[in-house]
């Protein structure tokens, strides 16, 4: 979903920057707090960021001024909360712009909004909602990753449709959504399954840090 450098008109670049910056600042405070309380979490933070980087570098071209790829933002969002995931997304997107020429600096604000704010927030809300209902965290993580990925693309479609409302906003929104849906739904399912595998592994080998981060549904935390 990385919108290319220069693809958005300057007005929209500025708008998305203004919307994203407060969330990022809040995220930095959050990360500071987590790493001070649980020093072990730094590595997990870096690894889930690198995971996001590697997954979202596997891109397929899409005809919408951006491209399709898994986002990997669900995992980071569930582990550390949506605000922290948005900081990870900023770093990931900056690296991708500078290392892979993928995305861009002027469109960084817009890309952070879709991949770092909307996606993680949805993923986190879904995860919390499902675990509150005392359903196993494995099912919750699947839907969190799946919907986090999908909603990232919905947000990108909105951004593109707002920038190119031609002839009407809804008309171009439908076009962008339609194009993304073809590639994105299978990718989102694959990402969901991959995240489940990783989650099960984390539960098995790193349950200590997960319970420190307070992530299990009640039933599971009793079992541990």
């Amino acid at each position: 979903m990385h919108i290319m450098e220069g693809f958005l008109p300057p007005l929209w670049c500025a708008v998305w920057y203004i919307i994203s910056i407060p969330v990022i600042i809040y995220g930095i405070f959050k990360i500071k707090k987590v790493t001070e309380e649980i020093p072990d979490s730094k590595t997990l933070l870096a690894v889930s960021g690198a995971f996001m980087f590697v997954l979202s570098s596997l891109k397929l071209p899409s005809v919408t001024g951006s491209c399709s790829h898994p986002t990997g933002n669900g995992l980071g969002a569930v582990l550390f909360g949506p605000a922290a995931a948005s900081v990870l997304a900023v770093i990931v997107l900056l690296f991708q712009a500078v290392l892979l020429a993928h995305g861009g600096l002027t469109t960084l604000g817009a890309n952070v909004f879709s991949m770092g704010i909307v996606g993680p927030f949805v993923a986190w809300a879904v995860y919390k909602g499902i675990t509150k209902a005392n359903i196993s965290s494995t099912i919750a993580i699947f839907f969190a990753a799946f919907l986090g990925d999908l909603l990232t693309y919905v947000a990108t479609s909105f951004q593109l449709a707002l920038a190119f409302p031609d002839p009407t906003f809804t008309g171009s929104l439908v076009k962008f959504l339609g194009i993304f849906a073809i590639t994105q739904i299978p990718l989102a399912i694959a990402e969901g399954l991959l995240t489940v595998v990783i989650w099960n592994g984390l539960k098995e080998y790193r349950s200590k840090i997960l319970s420190k981060l307070n992530l299990f549904s009640n039933k599971e935390s009793e079992a541990i």
């Binding site: 500071k32 790493t35 590595t43 870096a46 980087f53 590697v54 770093i91």
Partner: peptide
């Protein structure tokens, strides 16, 4: 720019290369 951001970025940069090497 806040130090913690730079620190995570540096760690992530190293981790990306660890990922690629493992891959």
């Amino acid at each position: 720019v806040p130090k913690i951001l730079i620190e995570i970025a540096l760690l992530m940069y190293t981790t990306i290369f660890i990922f690629l090497e493992q891959l």
